[in-house]
Design a binder for these strands. Structure first.
Lengths: 348, 348
DNA sequence: CTGAAAGCGCTTACAG
DNA sequence: CTGAAAGCGCTTACAG
């Protein structure tokens, strides 16, 4: 059996209380005593039992990360990864560990009847689509949870997200400046708040420039590359054809690019493509993709940081945090071609 | 305060022992009693305290995942992600939670003097380069740890990895069949066992075909795209120039492709490129990258599964598990061009 | 500066 | 089928 604090105490000739104090760096322990204890710890390769510690301190120093959709989706999305990275870094540097849970529904099993949240001192939820879940459903204290997204299942406030609307405005203005006036949009059918904000930003920018948003110019995918390919197909079937495609995430933008290449259309000479997210592959693409960068890592770090102050502070909710998006102009976007292939019908 | 098992017991009019039994689905509890208890649990929104449970059961149902290098590196590598995905899926489906720790050195902080491992029932280490770390250093039971890689810090056996050697053999034979006899290799300087196996496989395949491996044809990077670009540069400076480049990971292969394009060299018409890993971007590249696929997700799942049998079984070590690699032939590789640009000097 | 003792919230033989 | 009681390994006032 592993050594316990009793073994250490006995070996060092002190009480367990003293051992505990040494281990927690309490002042007021004599240098000699401290040395004796530390030596005993060494000798026995004593590692404190964290479950016991947690029980008596009523704190686990574990932070949960809930990603209530399938692991499949999560790990397919590089953007989510950066979020995780930001969270892990912040949490780790503050001495907490990260407990990862994908799949929202508590998967039943051996030792656990309750939901995974029960271990954690708090949790961040990456939850664009957490619909009906409450903090309680997850076994969480409602005042110790923050969500990356717009809608908190933990009550008011306590959310962090990028400025999706502004990002879409920037992308659209960029296209407008390049002379595009037939912009096809690839959105998705999922009811995700961030998506609505992006659509809204796009529409607003169009209207500000005196254009009328055309519902016909919006095709829907499901965030996957394949769906972007298909959506681009339906967009290209339109007459007049769009001169630019604004995909609401990078993977769909990449699908669109693939189709364009297959059709022998040059990017951006024939059609401009702009994405959203700035996943790592975006810069590596051919041509490199112009896209809106979400500060994913910062979003993660911010969420973690907010959570930790909730846990260590008084738990008073904070206001929604909106982080800036940034337009990354790369080679996939260019001015509308001087002599667009005539495609009939346009009178103006 | 949250409700405890005492509150539930009182409300249901039974003992805590009975509540515990109901919650753990012990048989021999009358239907009525069960119902009363469950109702009380409902009413009080009782969630068991997992720390207490862990303490008395001497099990946490948490599995650690140690990635002893910076979060930065980890999350930059899509391959590692698939590993994580495989682990999370397996572990989750068996009712365990995953505790993520990057950065090997125990980051000190608030509640924890010991290393993060102390919480877990066992752990998987993704550790191509865990050099001096022992299980004890991580606070782990040595018989409850498995490593993804070749060298276990936990004693003999208990490792899982892909057949890196065979993968490199396949890639090299593929190049040989295409007629390439001047194959430049982009390796890396890090002392990683998998890398050595790949180099070894490459050399063996060359020799089996009657070619002599030429140390000049090996340039080193550091796994990053940039380093692949640079290494390709030095390879192209060679005379005679290589007709093919075999990069020992995909990101470096992509760097090489970037350089080739910049130099106006066609892929694969002028130079063939082959990678290793099959990260998601590989298939999306232009041209799509021929590469060796490691079954990362399966490797993760296998590691997790082995770990769980260690935890739930008798802890007897298992033999190293070697999973098959697979050559994914795509458009970046092609036959050596019919009339290679004469570049003087060759006598044979 | 140090220690005795209670308590954290569960589970588990053991009796009944 | 049910319950009393001890125990899991720590921490924390409280005394001294």
């Amino acid at each position: 059996m592993a050594a316990t604090i009793y073994d250490v105490a006995r070996k060092a000739g002190v009480s367990t209380a003293t051992v505990s104090k040494v281990l927690s760096n309490t002042p007021y322990v004599s240098t000699q005593t401290r040395a004796k204890v530390l030596a005993a710890v060494q000798d026995l390769s004593y590692v404190p039992n964290l479950a016991a510690r947690s029980l008596s301190k009523a704190r686990t120093f574990i932070v949960g990360l809930f990603i209530p959709y399938a692991a499949d989706t999560v790990f397919a999305d590089p953007h989510v990864l950066d979020l995780i990275r930001g969270i892990e870094e912040e949490v780790g540097s503050r001495g907490y560990s990260l407990l990862l849970s994908t799949a929202g529904d508590a998967r039943q099993a051996p030792g656990r009847s309750g939901p995974r949240g029960a271990y954690a001192d708090g949790a961040v939820l990456i939850a664009p689509s957490v619909l009906g879940l409450s903090a309680e459903d997850l076994g969480l204290r409602p005042d110790h949870c923050v969500v990356v997204g717009y809608h908190s299942p933990c009550g008011q406030g306590n959310t962090v997200h990028a400025d999706d609307r502004a990002g879409a405005v920037m992308a659209t203005e960029h296209l407008l400046h390049l002379g595009h006036d037939r912009i096809g949009v690839i959105s998705a059918t999922q009811p995700i708040a961030a998506l609505e904000r992006r659509l809204e930003g796009h529409r607003d920018a169009l209207q500000a420039a005196g254009q009328r948003p055309d519902p016909q110019m919006v095709a829907n995918g499901d965030f996957s590359l394949q769906s972007g390919y298909l959506a681009a197909q339906s967009l290209l079937a339109l007459r007049p054809q769009p001169t630019a495609i604004f995909a609401l995430n990078d993977r769909m933008a990449m699908g669109a690019m693939r189709l364009l290449k297959e059709q022998g259309l040059a990017i951006p000479a024939d059609v401009t493509v702009v994405g959203f997210d700035d996943i790592p592959a975006a810069a590596l693409f051919d041509p490199p993709l112009t896209t809106v960068r979400q500060p994913a890592r910062l979003m993660g770090a911010t969420a973690a940081q907010k959570l930790l102050s909730l846990i260590e502070g008084d738990g008073a909710p904070f206001d929604d945090v909106e982080l800036p998006a940034q337009l990354m102009v790369r080679a996939s976007s260019g001015p509308v071609s001087a002599v667009p292939e005539s495609q009939g019908g346009a009178i103006d």
